[in-house]
Design a protein around this nucleic acid. Structure first.
Lengths: 193, 193
DNA sequence: AAGTGATAGTACCGATCGTTCTTATCTGGG
DNA sequence: CCCAGATAAGAACGATCGGTACTATCACTT
């Protein structure tokens, strides 16, 4: 919902509104394909406000991706904290969470991997944030697998399965890939402990 | 090497030269980011020749991706044909092939998935070709697993591992992911037969 | 009541992009 | 010998894009 000119809102709320609209437009259309004007329209914000808050399109992209990464991490930490039954159950909780993610309307894969893929050949913020995201998953899994035989190796394998399932699910528009991934994960966990 | 104006070469050779140069530029820089002028320069061809052969940038993209898909399929068919020892060995031959692919200089992931990711939100040729490519892998694995307990399910799992490994290897610039994927594949094959 | 700051809306600018057009050059065939 | 075809080189065009500038409006503060 647009804000009327001059309406005094928390500037933080304006920033968040732009961030959410930009994430939506970038996700639906692709980062390069989406123009600033589309985000202006979607956010009901003026260009001036966007550029005053984020400096440039690249700054907006980085802010969107950073925000996205933080949200995803918070979700996973919550899912892990809510799972009882040890490391095995916690890893499965992570994959259950991403399985429900695949089923969401408008699911288009991981925003961070998508952005880095669009930016290939350019070592900028998207690529760095995408690598950080892979590292986050690897660290998370390694921590959950502290009792396993080879936590590092199993963690890396889980990251491969997670990213592969996300890509295939997005490309085929098939949420069922989440269930297939879970079977692989159970197998990896059986072998890991 | 540029062709001098008027030099009479096989028009097929000119087309192939443009195709190779475009594949290289698209792969290094990204499809959206790469301009026609960069391909002109890389191919040593004129714009006129490119547009007469491919009609438009989209036509060139489609031709590049189609060519790429055919080459990849031929490589895999060759690898499968050269592997003796039944379905299990043939599946492993496919993953050995992609492991060597990860180690190639300038490896940037699967051109088809990358292109479809750039084009998300637009159901054009790149997306269709990427889906076809996933189907190719699934069909290939299912055929190789005809003696297994559940060929369809295992084939789908193998596709997830293959795409996940490709993405992670490209993102981390780590060819070692191929070896990690192979361990998962061996595990899946152990369970499948 | 006046002033300040954030905002929407919109016009505008320079650059780049995809595409077309023009010109000159060279080769092979009639 | 000349013509047809393919090509390189590059100018030109319209559209779009990221980014800036300007104006008017409204809320809050003093």
């Amino acid at each position: 919902m647009p804000v009327k000119a001059g309406e005094r809102l928390d500037p933080e709320a304006t920033r968040d509104r732009i961030l959410r609209a930009a994430a939506d437009v970038f996700g639906r259309r692709g980062i390069h394909a989406a123009g600033i004007n589309e985000i202006v329209e979607a956010a009901g914000a003026s260009k001036l406000t966007i550029y005053r808050n984020f400096g440039s399109k690249d700054g907006l992209i980085e802010a969107v991706l950073t925000d996205r990464a933080q949200r995803v991490r918070a979700w996973h930490h919550e899912a892990v904290a809510g799972a009882d039954g040890g490391g095995r159950a916690q890893v499965l909780a992570v994959f259950d969470l991403i399985a429900t993610w695949y089923a969401e309307a408008g699911f288009r894969g991981c925003a961070l991997m998508n952005a880095a893929t669009e930016d290939r050949g350019y070592d900028g913020a998207p690529r760095r944030l995408a690598q950080d995201h892979l590292t986050f998953y690897r660290d998370l899994f390694r921590r959950l697998l502290s009792g396993a035989r080879d936590p590092e190796r199993t963690a890396r394998q889980l990251v491969v399965v997670l990213e592969g399932a996300t890509l295939v699910s997005a490309m085929d528009r098939d949420p069922g890939v989440g269930a297939e991934a879970r079977v692989i994960v159970e197998m990896l966990l059986d072998a890991a402990f």
